[in-house]
Write a protein that binds this DNA or RNA. Structure first.
Lengths: 260, 260
DNA sequence: CGGGACTTTGAGGTAGATCAAAAAGTGTGG
DNA sequence: CCACACTTTTTGATCTACCTCAAAGTCCCG
């Protein structure tokens, strides 16, 4: 079992989530306060543990407080495909509020701490504040938009383009929550996990990382990604951050200048 | 331009949509009446026309009344990937209510008739009836669930498995709206379109169709799909209809018996 | 009856898979 | 602080599913 270092009601874990919601949806004081007041139960999950297992019928949603979480599906012969990636501030399975019986597992790709929030509390909030309902629905729509972008990559782009695209996406998402600088960010996934994300083999991921390092677009070494040539990276990935719906925070300043 | 055979407020076009919503979400009389009363503007779209073009900022959602509609994204070198498929009764871009600026196009894959519904009317409904808001949010979550299933297929399954999976999905979705019988349904897509859906070449789709015909699982000839061996098809596709969230209507009677 | 879109078939090429094994890192308990 | 087991990364060699290019055949509609 996961080590269940559970603490109790703690409004501070909701703050990063609220901040991310506010990037996309305006909410007034009362609505914001209502979100912050949601009761949570926090726990630490070791790497490679399922937070929610396949086919489980949940009564709560999982907010990522720290670490990194993937939504994983599996094919009969054991191949895994990750269909969503969640970083701190993301509600990993907000959709479970309206669809409690999911057909995927939620897996901690590295040690993570997550806060559980009861569906009934979220539903109550939505019934009371239509703006919150809309904000949550919008967040789910953005998740779908990101997934659609991945589908295009997996279906139609080369391995190198997929990898550079992932790097660009993470750079934007991490810098939106203030965890990436213009120089890069901490890379928390093994090459096998990246393969499961991109629909590739771990071996091939390794070779593509080597190629990107060689090309001098970025450097991925010792679990740290360093951006070296952002415009080249964007171009190789055909990256346009619009689908992330993170507005002005989507790209660090320097990148805006560089990309024009 | 598309031929704009627009009629006015017509409650009958909403009925199939309501029926599909009710498969997933219970709504009371008043709520149902409110949905049926939504004002619509119907038009006919020729094959291969964009109903909503890329990056457009829409003020309405599109309900598919007849035909077949795809959500299409494109890569820089012109390769197309279809990330959602909508059949009659589907609201093709319900998510645009909360995310009006989309990064994809809505394309009529064959002659289609669609009914446009103003976002502001839908929003008004959601503010008034939280149950409707929840039902619409849920519908979007199901779309995302379907897309996730495709991502797994594109990333991890063989061409033949992807094609059989698509056949199974369409058989279930069409039979849920009473358009497929146990014998099969009308196939409305060209092989090139199927390729864009599955992340394959039209040529390879052609060969896989030939293989499936040869295997005797199904017969796809002259724009008609005939199911021959449903259990074999399901097995080849590793198909489990749970992700479609269509409950008991998901599979025709015979198939339940056959699949046990 | 002619032009365009779709399907079918063939031959050959390639991106990425598979299999295998060495090298480097990581953590645990003694 | 070391020794042992385990996971992750790296490299090499070979294979194959699917792509590309090309051309013929078929269907459909005006």
């Amino acid at each position: 079992m996961a080590t269940m270092d559970t603490s109790d009601v703690d409004t501070s874990v909701m703050k990063p989530f609220l901040a991310r919601v506010l990037l996309r949806s305006p909410l007034d004081e009362t609505e914001q306060a209502a979100i912050l007041a949601l009761p949570t139960r926090t726990s630490t999950i070791p790497a490679n543990w399922d937070i929610v297992s396949l086919g489980e019928d949940t009564d709560h949603a999982c907010l990522v407080v720290a670490g990194i979480v993937g939504r994983c599906e599996q094919t009969a012969n054991g191949d895994r495909q990750i269909t969503a990636l969640h970083i701190p501030g993301d509600m990993a399975d907000l959709h479970s509020v309206v669809l409690p019986k999911t057909s995927w597992a939620l897996n901690a790709l590295a040690v993570s701490t997550i806060a559980r929030i009861k569906h009934r509390d979220i539903v109550a909030l939505c019934e009371c504040y239509p703006a919150i309902a809309r904000a949550f629905w919008r967040d789910c729509a953005v998740d779908a938009s990101i997934l659609a972008g991945w589908a295009v990559g997996i279906g139609r782009r080369s391995a190198k383009a997929r990898l550079t695209h992932l790097i660009c996406e993470l750079q934007c998402r991490y810098s939106a929550i203030g965890v990436a600088t213009d120089e890069g960010f901490e890379w928390r996934m093994s090459q096998a996990q990246v393969g499961d994300l991109l629909g590739l083999t771990a071996v091939h991921v390794n070779r593509m990382i080597a190629a990107i390092n060689r090309d001098g677009m970025a450097r991925l070494l010792e679990r740290r990604l360093t951006i070296i040539d952002w415009p080249a990276l964007k171009a190789a990935a055909e990256f346009d951050p619009a689908y992330l719906h993170l507005q002005r925070q989507s790209e660090p300043e320097r990148m805006h200048l560089a990309s024009g």
